[in-house]
Amino acid sequence: MLSELAADRTRVADLDVEILALERSLSASRIQRAQVQERLDAYKYPVLTLPNEIIAEIFIHYLPNYPHCPPLAGLESPTLLTQICRKWRGIALSTPALWRAISLPDPDIPPAEQGALLEAWLGRCRVHPISLRFHVYSEPGELGTEILTAIGPHRTRLQYLVLNQISLPQLLTFEGPISVLRHLELLLEDQEHPLVIKLSFCDSPLLRTALLNANGVESTMMPWAQLTSLALHEFFPADCAPILQHTLNLVHCELALVEDPNHEHVPDVTLPSLRSLTLTHILKADSITGYLQTLTLPGLRSLRVPETFLGPNPIDTLKSFVSKSGCKLERLCVTGTRSGFDSFYPMAFPSTKISFAQWAMSSVDWIITEFGDARELEELSATASE
């Protein structure tokens, strides 16, 4: 018994020594930690030393170039910038330019939340002009009505407006002058009962570029004479002429044509300022021959055309068109060429840069892709007018 007590006393003494050693080691570690933390506290991250205005400018460059729209959440969204730190959140929320381009609906966000997000973004961008893209490839339903109703009070700030597959009654949300509107894409869904009163965009003095389908044209009044870039989607050739006859200032034009089963007469059209023309077809039309010959384009520099549009003698058709127009083609792209026939084009047009594509894309997505960069179109128009 006495021996066990002696052993325990010895063990306690040994543990006291170990505890003392550990306490000294812990004390030393705490001193070292304090020294390291002091150095960290004294260090200033370069980005945090920048003025708020510079950080805000960096944030703007993080987003897709305006008027292209970032997603509502995730990468390339201004929402992500609010989740890094308190300072960045404050800067992001107080930078209106981050919130001025809005694309809806977002498939990754519950529909019930998107109306509130739209209201938040519209509030954060304050009085800045807006780029709004509303793409719906199915029935928009209540979500579409809610979104379009929310944007209505901010209509006068719309600068770039894309509406895809909305109904004609929903279009009335945008009734009234839109003085800062520069670019309009309007692809309306089919409707049994068209609007009795057309929506007018004639009070949009800055409007220069437009993409429209037949329902869009029938439901609106457009300032055709001031447009410099125009795309028409799914039109009969004869239906294009009355529009183009009023667009004498066009610089860039894209026509997605549908073969007319009635083969109506196509009136001649002269576009003196046109520099770039793209023709394609919708619904796999076998051919729309003869249409190019109805156009006189003295300023044309770039032409993209399906070979089926040129008839059985495409080289002769192109030569006749160029001669009639008196234009100097710099670029020619022929789509859907016959095998072994490509070599004849460079021989016939030695001073023109020739290219070929085996098939002509015929969906509206192609037109939007080619036509959608409003900045490039405005630059093209400005260059042509110099």
Rank of each mutant, 00 (worst) to 15 (best):
A7L: 05
D8H: 10
R11Q: 13
L22W: 05
L26M: 06
Q35F: 04
I55V: 14
H61C: 07
Y62E: 05
L63C: 10
A73P: 00
L80G: 02
I84D: 08
C85W: 14
R86P: 01
S94Q: 10
L98C: 06
P107N: 11
I109S: 08
P110Q: 11
P111K: 11
E113I: 01
E113V: 00
Q114K: 05
G115V: 08
L117S: 05
W121R: 09
H128V: 03
E142C: 12
A150T: 15
H154N: 12
L158Y: 08
Q159V: 02
I166A: 08
Q170I: 03
G176Y: 06
P177F: 08
V180Q: 10
R182A: 14
R182Y: 04
H183P: 03
L188A: 03
P194Y: 04
F201N: 09
C202P: 01
D203V: 01
S204K: 05
P205M: 05
R208F: 02
V217C: 06
A225D: 07
A231Q: 12
A238R: 12
A238G: 00
A241I: 06
C253M: 10
A256C: 11
D260C: 05
N262E: 11
T270C: 12
P272Q: 11
S273D: 08
K284F: 15
L292P: 04
T294A: 14
L295H: 11
R301W: 03
V305T: 12
E307F: 04
I315D: 11
R331T: 13
T335S: 15
T337R: 07
R338G: 13
F341R: 15
P350F: 13
I354N: 01
S355W: 06
R375E: 06
